[in-house]
Amino acid sequence: MNHAIDATSNHARHLTGDRLRALVVTAPGINCDRELGEAFAAAGAEPEFVLLDVLRREPSRIDAFDLIGLPGGFSFGDDVAAGRVMAALMRREVYPAMRAAIERGTPIICPCNGFQIAVQAGLLPGPVSTVHGGAWPDTPARPSMALSQNQSARFHDGWTRVEIPANTRCLWTAGLECTGDDALLPSAHGEGRFVTSEAELVRLESNGQVAIRYAAEANFNGSMGAVAGICDPSGLVFGLMPHPERYLHWTQHPWWTRMDRSWRATHEPLGLRMFRAAVAHVHRTQSGASSRSRSSMPRR
């Protein structure tokens, strides 16, 4: 981890009263942690990078954060299947603290490998309202969906057109304007084909838990329902195969050199706007609970 170079390093951190704290979980093979940190920083939160090994020993460290990110990469090599080993390691010691964070109202973003981990670690799609009264179970639920090998059986890097369902309850994406050349996100994965049962897909769709989709003819990995990302029923936990954290600057867009300079000056890229939405959400909920200490009290 390159502390001296990245503006978002722990060493450069100056905690101020109103900067939110964002946890970026790292582990061997996680490799999109720095850009996820950069995204939180660009949206106004202070990223801190903590190794999974540390969290497994001290899960309570999670309690201090206002936002959480499970980054992309190849955790533990993705050797058996993407995210499998990391999810297995998270289920026992880390899940309870993550669950508590969600119940406290902490937004969590899980791009790419993070998404693959989240669905296997019981963090997505979250509780079903008819089971246990809609509460998070004490132990991680058995996965009800998978991110399987792309239809091509091959890793693929490219930008694809995306759409945000009008009914989504995902606080990271709901209501974001998503049009024209800006309605693209980068993806880079070999195992991103969203698979679940037809019934579960219908349930997620009708419950507003589909947070983002590939646009027509952009469903390159063959996902069911063209699902690119989903959220839990609270809308806090957002998992998606694309990488919004790689789309914070116009110069990251694949044809930014074609875009009008003045238009670029007055608009923000879709990726950055997702992080801004989450940070704004936390500010909103915290100002509603301003009399309480931020990190130790429940907000809802």
Binding site: R34, E35, F155, H156, D157, G158, R246, T251, Q252
Partner: peptide, 15 residues
């Protein structure tokens, strides 16, 4: 090119 993650680290400004 597309089998390589040529954008990881978010720093590939001209691809």
């Amino acid at each position: 090119i597309r089998q390589y993650d040529h954008e990881v680290q978010g720093g590939t400004m001209v691809k």
